[in-house]
């Protein structure tokens, strides 16, 4: 029996955001990365356009992190040397490098804004891919560090994060002045997500420079809830809601590797299997799920997870000729 393929038609689409700037555009990146533009639900190429492939960033930190053993085994030799680590990410196939300035945290090394800015410049010199830079998460400190970073990276169109509902003005202003894109983060809440986008756009940051970080949970820890929020964001965009029509960025490595399913050694849970493969799979499966929910930029940690997700993406991006 012939099956009738139902195609929905939407009035809106996800906006496009380009990260990075080449020499001609006032930066020093070898190439830029553009995401978004979708006019349908994730990967329904028979129904609408999926003009840009979702991209994968690998995360690095300014000072050596306390990540779990499989990550140390793979990356430990470059920890503490962000430029070398960034190069390794690019060699592993990362589309972008995502730098988290954990060392700025007053409860860690309390690095100065100037030191953080220097790290960003070092990373920019080391690699040609566009950059994501995120603060340590302490609002007060981030408001000192991120403007310095924005200035040091002026013109490079870095994705800077993260703006939150009660702390967005300083970062938005820094992005405006130094021509960067902003990561607008909401706590798994579509209403706050929309409100924050409204507040940022009211400061006149161009809509083509806003990314939504809806906050992601790991596989097994509430990912279903994130999935439905992301779905609603995409449906809102497709129905023409301009304040939800932004590409989505998901910080997955952090979420996946902080769960014991990923980070506990086999000696602790002998029935769970060897830790390196388990951790990589936990990260890759989390990524695979949010891709289906509409993520455009994935921040991962383990190069092996990147390779797995890339294979998944290859398959998802094959147009279905239905």
């Amino acid at each position: 029996m012939a099956v009738e393929v139902i195609r929905d038609r939407y009035t809106g689409r996800v906006g496009e955001v380009t990260l990075g700037a080449t020499k001609d555009q006032g930066g020093t990146r070898i190439h830029t990365v553009t995401v978004g533009g979708d006019s349908t639900l994730p990967f329904l190429q028979f129904e609408g356009e999926v003009p840009h492939r979702p991209v994968i960033a690998l995360e690095i930190t300014d000072v050596a992190p306390e990540w779990s053993e499989p990550l140390r085994a793979e990356l430990g030799e470059v920890w503490g040397d962000p430029a070398a680590w960034a190069k390794k990410c690019v060699e592993c196939g990362a589309d972008l490098v995502s730098l988290t300035l954990i060392g700025a945290d007053p409860e860690r090394q309390n690095r100065s804004p100037e030191d953080c800015a220097r790290t960003v410049r070092d990373v920019l010199s080391a690699v040609g891919v566009p950059l994501i830079v995120r603060g340590c998460g302490n609002d007060e400190k981030d408001n000192q560090v991120l403007p310095a970073v924005a200035e040091a990276a002026a013109g490079e169109n870095v994705a800077l994060g993260t703006a939150k509902q009660d702390n967005y003005k300083t970062l938005t202003a820094a992005c405006m002045v130094h021509k960067h894109s902003i990561i607008a983060q909401s706590p798994i809440d579509i209403n706050i997500c929309k409100q924050l986008n409204i507040l940022i756009s009211e400061m006149n940051l161009p809509l083509s420079r806003i990314l939504i970080d809806p906050t992601t949970a790991s596989l097994g820890f509430g990912i279903e809830y994130c999935f439905s929020i992301m779905e609603r964001i995409r449906l809102g965009a497709l129905q023409g809601d301009k304040m939800l029509s932004f590409p989505v960025i998901c910080n997955l490595g952090y979420e996946a590797w902080r769960q014991k399913e990923a980070s506990a050694p086999a000696s602790e849970f002998p029935g769970w299997g060897e830790q390196p493969a388990r951790g990589v799979l936990w990260e890759a499966m989390t990524a695979a799920a949010v891709l289906e929910a509409g993520a455009h930029i994935l921040i991962l940690r383990h190069p092996a997870a990147l390779r797995l997700v890339r294979r998944r993406l290859d398959a998802l991006m094959v147009p279905n000729p239905m």
Binding site: I190, N191, K194, Q195, I198, G236, D241, M243
Partner: peptide, 11 residues
């Protein structure tokens, strides 16, 4: 029919 946000009237 629209997603709620505090500034929905303005939007």
């Amino acid at each position: 029919q629209d997603v709620y946000a505090d500034s929905y009237l303005k939007v």
